[in-house]
Write a protein that binds this DNA or RNA. Sequence first.
DNA 1: TTTGATGCAAAATATTTGCAGGATA
DNA 2: TATCCTGCAAATATTTTGCATCAAA
Lengths: 139, 139
Amino acid sequence: MELHQQRRMTRQRRVILEELAKVTSHPSADEVYAMVRRRIPRISMGTVYRNLDVLWESGTIQKLVSGGSQMRFDANAAVHYHVRCVRCGRVDDVAMDPPARIEERAANVTKYKILGHSLEFAGVCPACKKREATGQGTD
Amino acid sequence: MELHQQRRMTRQRRVILEELAKVTSHPSADEVYAMVRRRIPRISMGTVYRNLDVLWESGTIQKLVSGGSQMRFDANAAVHYHVRCVRCGRVDDVAMDPPARIEERAANVTKYKILGHSLEFAGVCPACKKREATGQGTD
DNA sequence: TTTGATGCAAAATATTTGCAGGATA
DNA sequence: TATCCTGCAAATATTTTGCATCAAA
């Protein structure tokens, strides 16, 4: 039960948020680091991680666990779903409403207190579909 | 495009699968390692990781990306949903049917070819709920 | 001023891999 | 017997953290 302390809007924190808001992709921490470093060359990876965490804790950004290796971040904090390309790893938003009473249904079949949910589709993105149709086998 | 080679059922691979099938929890690689080591004390972590991967590639087990830190494994390869405790990281199954036409709905709002989906609920498990109710603040 | 935040580097985690010897089909 | 697999250890990859200094409020 950690108390939230007073947070300060430092240049680093602001720029990280600004850069994240610019893109519709869902960058990993090192990609955010690369973007931010163009504006603050001496920023450290530790600062990037610390700020992504602070922004996530305050509900300003989303932290996605997609694929398996790295975390990905999303400046769109509203609940929405994602689809990940099984070929290239690309992640996009899926603009659909949550299935009716889905958390209520889950609560009925577990002893957990349900707080939220995340839904990720797996699929093949347009670019990979096209590449495959053209006969350019990948993998 | 990797060709699957001929696989051998070694003692290590068999015991890993047997131990995984015994539990309904969703152990992480090091938990599997601990379980298997009771039967094969000299097994190495590398062998555990390699085998979990082989079993996953062949569709024998599921690999869950929950939380963010470690992978978790599930001997039940059938599609089903999970709930993860936000306090202790425990993962359990959620016995509910997929929302009606959910992949069809997703297909309508993206350009992806949808292949599947995974749904994970976040919540507080019975043990953590109880601990909190008893006033034993955690974290 | 106070004290949260930063940069740097080292540490902690989690997972992967090279290699020589061992076991399975 | 062929070659897949193992144990061990070193290497990667990712994320976290201690600390002295800096800066937001």
